[in-house]
């Protein structure tokens, strides 16, 4: 049974919530980065620098997805059942919520990294950008070395054992990847008209 429903095992539900956040974070980057009209963007870039304007766009998207992810996590933790996947092991709600929040942050950060790398200025054509975003988001969720995969996987397997994971290393790794991806995108923002 996959999905987030009232009374479902809390760690499973938090895992799916975090996983769903990743493509949404990538999409929000696209919205923020391509939403401004070129004229308005150029005016702001002259006053500051193209890199700072681009950084502001990416950070806005990251802030939005983090806040949304936190709200979603709190809601899911509230409506889910405080038990493991087999409905026999008890799972502490407080600890599970913290674990879920960390996983959500990791997914928001990695989704932002995907969005930063798969949109302007690196990929300019909408078709390629959308295709790359979808593929990269999928790979980031299912492929082993990805911190988002690790965080979600830990939550779901924790649901079977009853042990609540704290995906702090995954969060740190995702933050690093997000910083590198954003830096690359910002550095290129003055080279692509």
């Amino acid at each position: 049974m996959i999905g987030v429903q009232s009374g479902q095992p809390i760690l499973d539900s938090l895992g799916y919530t975090a996983a769903g956040l990743l493509p949404m974070a990538a999409w929000l980057v696209r919205v923020c980065v391509t939403g401004d009209l070129p004229a308005a963007r150029q005016v702001a870039a002259a006053a500051t620098s193209p890199a700072r304007v681009h950084l502001a766009c990416v950070l806005t998207a990251l802030l939005c997805s983090t806040v949304l992810g936190a709200l979603a996590t709190l809601l899911v933790a509230r409506i889910s059942g405080a038990h493991g996947a087999d409905r026999r092991v008890a799972v502490p709600v407080g600890e599970a919520t913290v674990g879920g929040l960390l996983a959500a942050v990791a997914c928001a950060l990695l989704g932002t990294a995907v969005g930063a790398l798969c949109n302007w200025p690196l990929l300019r054509r909408p078709g390629y950008a959308l295709l790359a975003t979808a593929l990269a988001a999928l790979v980031a969720l299912v492929q082993a070395p990805s911190p988002a995969h690790a965080a979600v996987h830990d939550l779901v397997s924790g649901s079977h054992s009853g042990a609540v994971p704290m995906p702090v290393p995954a969060c740190a790794a995702a933050a690093l990847l997000c910083a590198v991806a954003t830096a690359v995108a910002c550095a290129l923002s003055s080279r692509r008209a």
Binding site: D36, L37, A39, V43
Partner: peptide, 15 residues
């Protein structure tokens, strides 16, 4: 890089 301001050729400001 002095403090700079720029007026673009077209400014369709739908903000």
């Amino acid at each position: 890089r002095p403090r700079t301001a720029y007026v673009p050729e077209r400014f369709p400001a739908e903000l």
